[in-house]
Amino acid sequence: MKAWLKGTMAAAVGVWGLAAVAVQAEEMVRIGVAGPFSGAYAAFGEQQWRGAEAAIVDINRGGGILGKQILLIKGDDACEPKQAMAVANRLVDNDEVQAVVGHFCSSTTMPASEVYDEAGILVMTHGSTNPMVTERGLKTVLRMCGRDDQQGTVGAEFVVKRLGAKRVAVLHDKDTYGQGLADAMKAHLHTLGLTEVMYEGLTRGEKDFNALVTKIKAAKADAVYFGGLHSEAGPLVRQMREQGVDVPLVSGDGIVSEEFVTAAGGGRFVKNVYMTFGADPRKSPEGKALVARFREAGYEPEGYTLYAYAVVQSIAAAMQESGSYNGVELANWLKRHSVETVMGPKSWDAKGDLKVSDYVMYQWDENGKYAEVE
């Protein structure tokens, strides 16, 4: 990559604020940031926005893209498919964005990406892991994260080979992401010679899972796998513990937020909870300076914060190096080149998936913190 991108990490110091620019919006590169900025999953939206905002501040201070400054335009989909479609159409028709960071939930990324692809606009999701995001043959859709058929495999291997579980209950939230992840885990569980003792869905937004916990007890499960997000995983694990079900709960990247601890009612309830997520980007040498700046500003860049930063870096690199804003041309450039990011070098295959997936297992502790399992 050219020096303009490599130097962006050192461009901003201290507490960030969007630098004032003396040009009109139409003279800027317009990038949409679409995700859940309200509702139950807003914690993930905050991670996304902080990462994207920090990236454009750095890139703008380093000269921008093709001599133009970047303008971020926020679109709140609340992880609701219909709202995501409205956001996508607004970003395309009214805001005339030239690329999009997002969406977060697979159930919103999939319909919204149809809009972007039809309009010829590049979209890169930082957190949508359902395989169908990139299996539909859309030309302008890529992702910065792995896939559920990858993390589901890691989860099943851990449950069987590390935990030694024999009676596994598999639960999901009936959503594109949650059920897709649970199904991927279940499928690999079968290849390992184990059949789940229970497979059941719950409904997003519910808080009372005591009847479900009673079924888990009756099934004599020695491990529970949950495909879903922190807002349901928290109450579920608390009610498991309150009913004396102290078996491990294993989940995916949908609980990689300290909001999970809040939803559970405190750190004492999340002990013995595990989750799959990419290798901690906060430990990447390329992101060391950025992580330090976030912490100096009083923010812990957990979860998908650095993922969103890396998405903006990748979009900017494609525009700068290709000299184009056309979504198909940008996607094709990314599929042919590696980009240096705060999470290390990233490259994509012909579908738009990362060539290397780095899912590992993490464990939550009684202090409400997570760390990689050795």
Rank of each mutant, 00 (worst) to 15 (best):
M1F: 11
G14F: 09
A20L: 04
A25Y: 04
R30E: 03
A34E: 13
F44A: 12
Q48C: 12
A52W: 03
A55E: 03
V57K: 03
G67N: 10
Q69E: 11
D76W: 00
P81F: 07
M85Y: 04
M85R: 12
M85K: 12
N89W: 07
V92H: 05
D95T: 00
D95S: 10
V97F: 07
H103A: 09
F104Q: 10
C105K: 06
E114R: 14
E114N: 09
D117P: 03
G120H: 07
H126G: 12
G127T: 06
M132I: 06
R136E: 08
K139G: 03
C145K: 02
R147Q: 10
T153Q: 15
G155K: 05
E157M: 13
F158L: 11
D173E: 05
D175H: 13
D183R: 10
K186G: 10
L192M: 13
L192H: 04
L192N: 02
T195F: 09
E196G: 05
T203L: 10
R204V: 05
E206S: 08
A211Y: 05
V213F: 04
V224M: 02
G228W: 09
H230M: 02
Q239G: 11
D246E: 13
L249N: 06
G252W: 03
D253H: 08
E259I: 02
A263G: 00
F269R: 00
D280V: 07
A289S: 11
F294I: 03
R295H: 01
E300F: 13
P301Q: 13
V311D: 00
I315F: 08
A318H: 05
S324H: 07
G327I: 06
V328D: 10
A331W: 10
S338N: 02
S338T: 14
V342R: 00
M343Y: 04
K346T: 09
W348H: 06
K351Y: 09
D353Q: 13
L354N: 10
M361S: 07
M361I: 15
K369Q: 11
